[in-house]
């Protein structure tokens, strides 16, 4: 089997890699990967914001339980979160859950926990004087948070959010394990069908993931520099 690499298998199956079984089946491949990551990003942004705010609450009956939940989620592998969702979600909402949503919810729960830490750090990074100044102008604590602290904190957090999005794109590959036909799953399907081109196929999808993730990593770095520059003046 020691022959040269033959990348024609990639071109012959390009449609399968990009859109899965669509239109004769559900959409899959790279498109599904991006779809899962995008929906997951939006939801976990909201989730992370809420959890993060609860984590900095002054009420310890809110803060400690939230911190406990966040740390439990951070303490277990994403794979475990996915398996739990697989069983838990249909029971919680009382009807069948499409596998796509199993994955989206698992990614959301998992990433929200990490995002909440970014939010927490971001809020704590704003000088305390700002809150005091806002309160002294007559704003209530909640208003001070929403109108004064959060807008500044969020801007500083943007690079970290972009980094989380990169992790999210990489994490969608785990959807393979419950049979959601995103890029990695599709790659194993093609690999299973063609049988003798695993090297070519895995190099190809590694390259696809790399191009997308690297683009976002670069964006995050550029944002970071821009923010640093803005802060400097």
């Amino acid at each position: 089997m020691q022959t040269g690499l033959d990348f024609s298998v990639i071109w012959n199956n390009m449609a399968h890699f990009m859109i899965g079984r669509y239109p004769s089946g559900p959409i899959g491949g790279l498109m599904l990967t991006l779809y899962l990551a995008l929906i997951g990003l939006v939801l976990s942004f909201v989730g992370g914001l809420v959890l993060g705010l609860l984590c900095v609450s002054h009420n310890r009956f809110i803060r400690y339980p939230t911190l406990a939940v966040v740390n439990v989620i951070r303490g277990i592998p994403l794979l475990m979160v996915i398996f739990w969702m697989y069983f838990l979600l249909p029971a919680l909402i009382g009807r069948p859950t499409p596998e796509n949503w199993t994955i989206i919810m698992a990614l959301t729960v998992f990433t929200s926990a990490y995002m909440s830490q970014i939010v927490q750090a971001g809020i704590e990074g704003i000088p305390r004087g700002q809150t005091e100044a806002a309160l002294s102008t007559g704003l209530r604590p909640f208003q001070a948070m929403v109108h004064v602290i959060l807008p500044q904190a969020l801007r500083n957090m943007i690079p970290s959010f972009v980094n989380q999005f990169v992790s999210m794109i990489k994490d969608t590959s785990l959807a393979f394990i419950v049979g959601v036909s995103e890029l990695t799953h599709v790659a194993t399907q093609v690999n299973n069908r063609t049988m003798v081109y695993p090297t070519e196929i895995f190099i190809f999808i590694a390259a696809v993931y790399f191009i997308i993730c690297f683009a976002f990593t670069t964006l995050s770095r550029w944002l970071e520099q821009r923010l640093a520059w803005r802060r400097a003046i």
Binding site: K170, D171, F176, P198, F202, I203, A206, C213
Partner: peptide
């Protein structure tokens, strides 16, 4: 910038 799962498959297969 590549998923670990893909890297595992690459090294194994």
């Amino acid at each position: 910038n590549t998923p670990l799962l893909v890297q595992i498959f690459f090294w194994y297969f």
